[in-house]
Design a protein around this nucleic acid. Structure first.
Lengths: 135, 135
DNA sequence: TTGCTCCTCACGTCACGTGAGGTGGC
DNA sequence: TTGCTCCTCACGTCACGTGAGGTGGC
């Protein structure tokens, strides 16, 4: 049997509002309020019924922590969610850049150590005759 | 005469509460509330009177925008201020890393382009005679 | 038919800003 | 003395969660 955890981050709408509310421990009406405030955007069935995804539930739990544990109102939650998304993006970019830097440094020393650089050496750096090397 | 703008970011406490409130366009009592919530930390005189700095005023205006224009409550403002500080730190680190990367790349090509690398080239890469170059 | 959904409206609670009231030090 | 500060308490407003009430589709 597939467990709920296996679908972590899944975007497919699978839960009706009553189940989603129960999973997140909130009132179904609360979910409608969150949606109106632009905090949540569950998909809809052809019959206009909301369908919440696993990702929606996670988001819901995060919102619930911010409002209940920290006493932050919905306007604040909205901005916080946006800021955290930006932080996440920035962290990813920074990780990529760190790898890039690591690679650039490795390349710099390896190109010198290996033969790869011979074809980039300026011609003037190549001595015509062995006895000219020391000049 | 030194203008207020010249002291932007200044940390010295210079304004008493009534002046600070007027500059930020809020009620003096509001400043005391912000302080109790941990959003602001003006210095105090020996006589226990609050003294607000230019930086405090800027912070105050930022808080005022978040609460009045966006309707965010103080718990939210507190977290947002912290998140923005973290974003700022991350951006600074990223800028430094970008410069680092630029430098690493420049170094890599310059070492190759200049004569600096000639003493690191493996001897085997240097042709004994001109007619051996093509081999 | 039953149990869900959809929506709107109303009430209770709480946070926050404003103000009053009484105090004390430059 | 005057005008500021300090603090606490109380009231008005508003946001949000909870719930009721009436509707319609699987």
């Amino acid at each position: 049997v597939a467990k709920r955890e296996d679908r972590r981050g899944d975007d497919r709408g699978v839960y009706i509002i009553s189940v989603a509310a129960e999973l997140a421990g909130v009132h179904p009406q609360t979910l409608r309020i969150y949606e109106r405030k632009g905090l949540l955007n569950p998909s809809r069935t052809a019959g206009n019924t909301r369908r919440y995804s696993e990702r929606d539930i996670e988001r819901l739990e995060a919102i619930h922590r911010l409002t209940q544990d920290l006493g932050i109102n919905l306007a604040g939650v909205k901005m916080i969610v946006e800021l955290e998304a930006e932080l996440e993006r920035l962290r990813k970019r920074m990780e990529a850049m760190a790898r890039e830097l690591e690679r650039a440094r490795r390349t710099a020393s390896e190109r010198v150590r290996s033969r790869e650089i011979t074809d980039i050496i300026p011609l003037s750096a190549i001595p015509r005759f062995p006895w000219e090397v020391g000049s």
